[in-house]
Amino acid sequence: MTTVTQAVRSSTSPDAPKRAGRVRSETSRAPSAYYWMVWPAVIAFAAFHTLPVIVSIFFSFTNYPGYGAWNFVGLSNYINLFKDERILQAYGFSFLFAVFATILTNVISLAVALGLNAKIRAREFWRGVYFVPYVLAILVIGYVFQFFFSNSLPKILSGIPLFADNILTNETWAWTAIVALAVWQACAFSIIIYLAGLQTIPAELYEAAALDGAKPWRQFRSITFPLISAFFTINVVLSLKGFLQVFDPIVALTNGGPGTSTESVTLLIFRGGFSGGEFAYQAANAVIFFIVITVVSLFQFRVLQRREADF
């Protein structure tokens, strides 16, 4: 009883608020070890990301070719970008590629994830198998695909005019080979995301729906997809952002050819900026591309998250 009384008196004393604030500040203050773990990452991010971005923005207002002297040219680089047919063609190709690859990746990944989430034998083994493409070097696999498209496929499908010759040399259809390679690798990561979402759905919902007579398609439309819509949003945003920046599959398969028919924005920035004497011009292109990707991603989040709320 005495202990309780003392506790009550100490809590009502004039110094109680000060002691309480001191206790809160001590408990809320993170140990110094946490700061030593965070600061190296912050410094590295600033040195290898933020600083190069600032330098690129600065040089985008100059005529710097990547070497030698330079002068300020104001907004000339940005104005010329919208008059350059090669730039516009690269943006058109990048968006066409990204839209098709994003749709295929999410349709295939969701279908595979639904199959893996079902009660099948060696389910964990197949999860590992489907994740293998994500850990492989894309350039190495790209050269394997290049041999397949240029040598094996014409022999296997010699009776089909489109595949009788090397499809990588076809100016109209070469981009489909790049889509095949990019989707094949991207599906590995998307499948894992969808599997994580499917595992959050209680099995009781499907049992109740089955008792009510709901068919598999009805269950998918009314239960599965609404409950994994957040995971769908993540996959679509990441897929489109990644495919807009496609680089490695193009280098491995076509190197931007035939001509410039499969030249993406990132490949054009790399070529012109580092080996074409257009450092400042392509720096301006990179700034515009960054803005485009940011706007597209924010628009996707706004639209898709609104759909989540509707569910």
Rank of each mutant, 00 (worst) to 15 (best):
291 I>Y: 12
277 G>M: 00
56 S>H: 09
125 F>E: 00
197 G>T: 05
105 T>F: 01
3 T>M: 14
294 T>K: 11
5 T>M: 08
289 F>I: 02
276 G>H: 01
148 F>Q: 09
216 P>S: 07
265 V>P: 01
176 T>E: 00
236 V>S: 05
4 V>N: 10
111 A>S: 10
293 I>Y: 06
53 V>H: 14
257 G>R: 06
36 W>G: 11
57 I>D: 07
297 S>E: 10
190 S>G: 09
171 E>N: 05
29 R>S: 14
24 R>C: 08
110 L>E: 08
277 G>C: 06
115 G>Q: 06
126 W>S: 01
51 L>V: 15
86 R>I: 10
117 N>R: 06
139 L>V: 14
83 K>I: 08
80 N>L: 09
114 L>D: 06
195 L>P: 03
80 N>F: 13
59 F>I: 15
67 Y>C: 01
196 A>W: 10
103 I>L: 09
84 D>S: 07
145 F>P: 06
289 F>A: 02
254 T>F: 01
295 V>W: 09
86 R>V: 13
76 S>M: 13
252 A>M: 03
174 A>N: 02
161 P>N: 09
247 F>L: 07
149 F>S: 01
23 V>M: 15
259 G>K: 02
121 R>Y: 06
91 Y>G: 03
309 A>E: 15
85 E>D: 13
209 A>Q: 04
202 P>D: 05
294 T>G: 12
25 S>L: 14
229 S>K: 12
305 Q>V: 05
187 C>L: 11
29 R>P: 02
287 V>K: 09
236 V>R: 09
59 F>W: 15
211 L>Q: 04
133 P>F: 06
248 D>F: 03
15 D>F: 12
10 S>I: 07
270 F>V: 11
273 G>A: 11
224 T>V: 07
222 S>F: 14
130 Y>A: 07
2 T>Q: 14
105 T>K: 07
175 W>I: 08
93 F>P: 00
241 K>S: 15
128 G>Y: 00
117 N>A: 11
252 A>H: 00
79 I>V: 14
269 I>R: 09
153 L>D: 00
117 N>D: 08
64 Y>F: 04
309 A>W: 11
98 A>P: 03
119 K>N: 04
119 K>H: 02
250 I>T: 00
250 I>V: 09
140 V>T: 11
141 I>A: 12
127 R>V: 02
43 I>H: 08
257 G>V: 03
84 D>I: 01
261 S>R: 03
271 R>L: 04
266 T>P: 01
134 Y>Q: 04
114 L>C: 05
108 I>W: 04
136 L>C: 15
147 F>M: 07
293 I>K: 04
86 R>D: 12
59 F>H: 11
165 D>Y: 04
49 H>S: 15
276 G>Y: 05
230 A>F: 12
163 F>K: 02
44 A>G: 00
300 Q>D: 13
306 R>Q: 13
261 S>F: 02
157 L>R: 05
83 K>D: 13
127 R>C: 06
265 V>Q: 03
279 F>D: 03
43 I>V: 13
198 L>E: 00
208 A>G: 04
101 A>F: 08
49 H>G: 13
27 T>M: 15
124 E>W: 12
225 F>S: 05
228 I>W: 09
